[in-house]
Design a protein around this nucleic acid. Structure first.
Lengths: 349, 349
DNA sequence: TAGAGCCTGGACAACGTTGTCACGAGCGGG
DNA sequence: CCCGCTCGTGACAACGTTGTCCAGGCTCTA
């Protein structure tokens, strides 16, 4: 049997373990290859006796269909990719989970990767997923140039951007109402008597940060308050920088009486600063935080629904895969102000 | 050109979009198929001029190698699977991220899925990943019978269980020291003068819950305290049940003066109950919680390092793939007691 | 200048699956 | 009794890639 021997050798050389194939099952059951395929896929046209023989062979050999081969033949992989910033961030966990649930409902698997807020890594990941021939891609942009995805989109990879818009290409995106949310949050502070309000946010090149700043400015303008430069601080959201920014706003001759924070990482740091601070300072944060209601005072936030973002994006992706949609569109989801105490504190002076 | 026409028809019928293949690139560049392959994979033996011609064709056509086909040919998929309970749970986010980082360091992609704490869904997911021919599998068990993975493991799928041990099969697993951690946490309460200490945990069929209960009992026994049945409550960790359990322990003629909570979901609910409660009750929770230091009093916890769990498991998986390891092993990672105030409160009476 | 050896490039088979098609058996109706 | 039909089954090609192997052209040396 040189044929068999050769085959075994090859296997033990290049793989680890010999997975049985349909050919093996067919040989054992004494039927043709296609008949096994029919049984495995539940296609009609097989007598019960034949089916049983095949099934027994499958069980005996521990056969499992190789989906890689199937995909190669069929074209669709029944999997979608998700590129996000950091799975460990509590904002993205629910988002990822929501995408997964929608994928599951459509019989698809989710492959996800973290870009670590690095544009190059985002691209690397997105393209790796395309090489795996995912049917669609949900991207939370880290970079601001997504032309690298153009050939993929043209080739039929349904692509939806979430949380931040796509850069330099025209594509579907699902965003929160960052501008409106920030505006509402700041207006809430103004309504409680504050006029000197600080804003601490992320780097302005990040779309969400820019939009939230725009909302802050709009709310201040609505109230006829002119904004001092010292009240605004934009930059990386590492604790050290945020801490310094907060302390500067709170000192000096005309300190702010309230702070609006641009995302959850900033909010947490500012809470720590305020806890060490003697004077009461009002605080409204963008993004909800677990246990926000257990703090004293409770934390008032502008909450975005990250699960809804994920769900909406994934649903749009599958509708696009089904060929129902026309041109790219931008969807905006509302935010919600949740008053818990910290945003309702009156000005201290 | 009937050949070309037919090919195009086929494509637009069964796929969406015509991805160019190496054949197309080869035709455009006027070289052979294998030469394109060599360029794409950076193999030696191609003159710079030829390479440039090929590269131009690749760019012009927007070609991207089809990894499905590659995998079929090569045997390894350079991807690993992760089956966990719920990505939205803050305990699993960092774990997943840690696994991803290790995978990335080994040039592999991570595919993950949530079992939603459902044994059937765990099996479905695990087998789907095997059908995709992942090289390895990290499983956080939901069910307690993993014999369904036996054929896969025999076939060479490196498998590591995390957080909870595998059921009814012999396999690698990486666990936290649940017993020791709980014992230390409860001993901490005893050291601060408590004798009537409650325990609220998850369903006892879950391994971690059983181990933590065992730790509780051991610490109590060490101190010569006999445990009343009313002090222990095991069951689903939905807020309603936990709330009821806590309130029962805190009422009656001999209420507990301290509570040890069996996981983060329980802890959060108990904090809420205690906040509404007049008498001071000490609390130590298993699992750390974000912002635990900002509560008043700060929350004392027995922290497990979920990222380390993931990292350790993934590293073991890749070492197994490299064929370095012998038999299955059980690794146990230490926990760490973090005192922040709530666990150091003295008994109220 | 001829022969040896090297380097580049291409033809071909194989990976495991599925779609197409054809074949043979059984059967009912003309 | 034969034609045509249905039904179960299997042979074969194709999906896009990579490993093997061979051919042809080049350089270098004797």
């Amino acid at each position: 049997m040189p044929e068999t021997a050769r085959r075994t050798d090859r296997h033990s050389a290049t793989r680890y373990g010999n997975r049985p194939t349909m050919k093996d099952v067919a040989a054992r059951a004494g039927v043709g290859l296609k008949t096994v395929s029919r049984v495995v896929n539940g296609e009609p046209g097989v007598t019960p006796e034949t089916e049983q023989r095949v099934q027994e062979a499958i069980d005996a050999l521990g056969f499992r269909r190789n989906d890689s081969a199937r995909v190669l033949r069929k074209g669709r992989t029944a999997s979608i990719g998700l590129v996000l910033e950091d799975l460990a961030d509590p904002f993205y966990g629910p988002l990822s989970r929501a995408v997964e649930e929608v994928a599951r409902a459509h019989g698809a698997l989710l492959i996800n990767g973290s870009s670590a807020e690095d544009a190059e890594r985002e691209q690397e990941l997105g393209l790796a997923l395309c090489a795996r021939r995912v049917d669609g891609l949900v991207v939370i942009p880290a970079g601001d140039d997504h032309r690298y995805l153009e050939p993929e989109i043209r080739a039929g990879v349904a692509t939806v951007f979430v949380d931040r818009p796509a850069g330099r290409i025209d594509a579907d995106c699902v965003l929160s109402d960052n501008y409106g949310g920030a505006r509402t949050g700041v207006a809430h502070l103004i309504a409680h008597g504050h006029r000197r309000i600080g804003f601490i946010g992320d780097m302005p090149r990040i779309h969400t940060a820019a939009e939230r700043l725009r909302g802050y400015r709009a709310a201040m303008e609505d109230a006829g308050i002119s904004v001092a430069d010292a009240w605004m601080s934009l930059g990386v959201t590492v604790p050290e920088r945020v801490r310094t920014a907060a302390e500067e706003m709170l000192s000096g001759p005309e300190p702010v009486t309230a702070i609006f924070t641009g995302n959850n990482r900033v909010t947490v740091t500012v809470i720590r600063v305020l806890a060490e601070h003697s004077r009461q300072v009002a605080l409204v944060g963008f993004d909800d935080i677990e246990l926000a209601d257990l703090l004293r005072p409770g934390l008032t936030v502008v909450a975005q629904d990250s699960a809804a973002l994920g769900r909406t994006a994934a649903e749009r992706l599958f509708r696009r895969l089904d060929g129902i949609l026309a041109g790219p569109e931008r969807l905006e989801l509302p935010t919600r102000l949740i008053a818990r105490g910290s945003g309702e504190l009156p000005p201290a002076d």
